[in-house]
Simulated scan of single mutants.
Amino acid sequence: MALAAGLLDLGFALFHAAFRRLFGWPERLAPSGSLNTAITQTLNVMLIFVFLAYGATLIWQSGQGSVHPLLPLAGGAFWGLRLALQFVWFDLKPWPSKLITAIFALTTVIHLLAVKG
């Protein structure tokens, strides 16, 4: 399960790397102001880094045959929180929102299943 969790995290890094193209950044961020545009793009780059580092660590540890349980537990907490925030701040009516919500739920479960190995 840790391998699957790590691969999902790497997939999310790729997804976030596509945000500039998918969401028309920075042009579509411009109305929020130059500071908000810079903050949003910086946070996205930092999140890509976290997903890459975290996913690679999970994959590496799974290849070593031993994953420290705090690593997938932290991932499960991260993705569980992200899932909860989906219900707070996003419109769940469009099908892409429903799809990403289901993916967040699946990712949460896979990380938590990896806690036990």
Rank of each mutant, 00 (worst) to 15 (best):
L43E: 03
V115I: 11
G65T: 07
N44G: 05
G55T: 00
A18E: 04
H111Y: 07
Q41E: 04
A18P: 08
D91N: 06
W60I: 11
A17W: 00
I103R: 09
R82K: 10
I110G: 12
L81K: 15
T107L: 10
P69M: 09
R28C: 05
R82Q: 07
P96V: 08
L113H: 10
N36T: 13
L35G: 12
F49Y: 05
G76R: 05
Y54Q: 02
M1H: 12
P96I: 07
L8F: 06
A4T: 14
R28V: 07
Y54L: 02
Q41W: 01
P69R: 05
S97F: 02
A105L: 14
T57C: 06
F15H: 15
A17K: 00
F51T: 00
L92P: 13
V115Q: 12
K93N: 06
F78K: 09
H16R: 08
L14V: 05
V67N: 09
L85S: 13
T107F: 06
A105P: 13
D9R: 00
T57A: 05
W60G: 08
L43V: 01
I39Y: 10
A77M: 11
T37L: 13
L81C: 11
T37W: 12
A56I: 02
S62N: 11
G76K: 07
R82V: 13
W79K: 03
A56S: 14
L3N: 06
L106M: 07
N36W: 11
L35M: 14
L10I: 06
S34H: 13
L29D: 01
I39K: 04
I59V: 09
A5M: 13
L113E: 09
A74I: 09
L8R: 00
A30I: 10
F12D: 03
T40I: 12
L92E: 12
H16L: 14
T40W: 04
T101V: 07
P69W: 13
A30T: 09
G63L: 07
G65R: 04
L10G: 04
L99T: 08
G117L: 08
A74Q: 06
W25H: 05
I100W: 13
L47Q: 02
I100Y: 13
T57P: 05
A56Y: 04
S66T: 15
K98S: 09
G65H: 03
E27D: 08
R28Q: 12
L8P: 00
S34A: 14
P69I: 10
P26W: 01
Q41S: 03
G11W: 05
G65E: 05
F49G: 01
T37S: 15
Q41Y: 02
I100D: 08
M1V: 10
T37G: 09
T107M: 11
Y54P: 00
G11D: 06
G75E: 04
A2V: 12
L71A: 14
W95N: 12
L10W: 10
T108K: 05
L43M: 11
T57W: 08
Q86N: 15
L8G: 01
T108N: 06
L22G: 00
R20I: 01
G33F: 10
K98P: 14
I39P: 09
R20H: 02
T57H: 06
R28P: 08
S66N: 09
V50E: 01
A74S: 11
